[in-house]
Amino acid sequence: MYEFEFEKPSTVTEAVAALADEDAQALGGGQTLIPTLKQRLAMPSKLVSLSGIAQLKELSGNGGMLTIGGAVTHAEVAAAAAVSYPALADLASHIGDPAVRNRGTIGGSLANNDPAACYPAAALGSGATIVTNAREITADDYFRGLFETALEEGEIITAVRFPVPEKANYQKFLQPASRFALVGVFAAKYAAGVRVAVTGASEEGVFRWHEAEAALDASFAPDALDGLSVDAGGMIGDLHGSKEYRAHLVGVMTKRAVAAAG
């Protein structure tokens, strides 16, 4: 890696100030950023670690809303949400490997917005709110494509608020090498309607499958999806699966998520 400055502030205000420097970069759990730096694929002037900010480590449940601090690790979510939001806990418990789960953070994952990551599907599928140092952003407004989000330079995710659904489930079909999602589908049933979010599949990143949501609003059952399919045109086609295969898997994984949600 190239040389960089390192700061570890203890408050959000200090972190925001530290990130004001040109080419400063926030560091969450480092599970994506550190390997990138090791390969010299990024050259930040300064890394600002968010792991020393107590406020970002908080996790609380309140009246059907689960609020997770931006620096909470996947392993902590897997443990803490097991009762309050089991589908989310289950998703978190299957991200990456133990090192990733014990270092990687929800804020880091959502800020990076890898098109095959799991958390974007949970956030979009839950209609979560991304809370930053400056504002609140609905998940529908937050995800803007591959590795693109609504975050401004230097903006920090302080928390993510998840409305807890009546039922939900996440089904991930593994890319054989990386074990990221080749296709992952998060389906959640709320009083206000069903949400279905798909990760791994689209060239535009995580997306909602509105036709499936409408069908599931009418009947939250796997066979409600019979005959529905996503257009292969916008899907990713690569070494691990064609566009058509991914489009097909979206249907299969959605049915399985609905079936598993009960």
């Binding site: 079909f173 054989p176 080749l182 691990h240 699966g241 064609s242 295969y245 097909h248």
Partner: peptide, 11 residues
Amino acid sequence: LSPARVWAAMN
């Protein structure tokens, strides 16, 4: 025999 190849062969 990746899942994608097996599925493509089946279909």
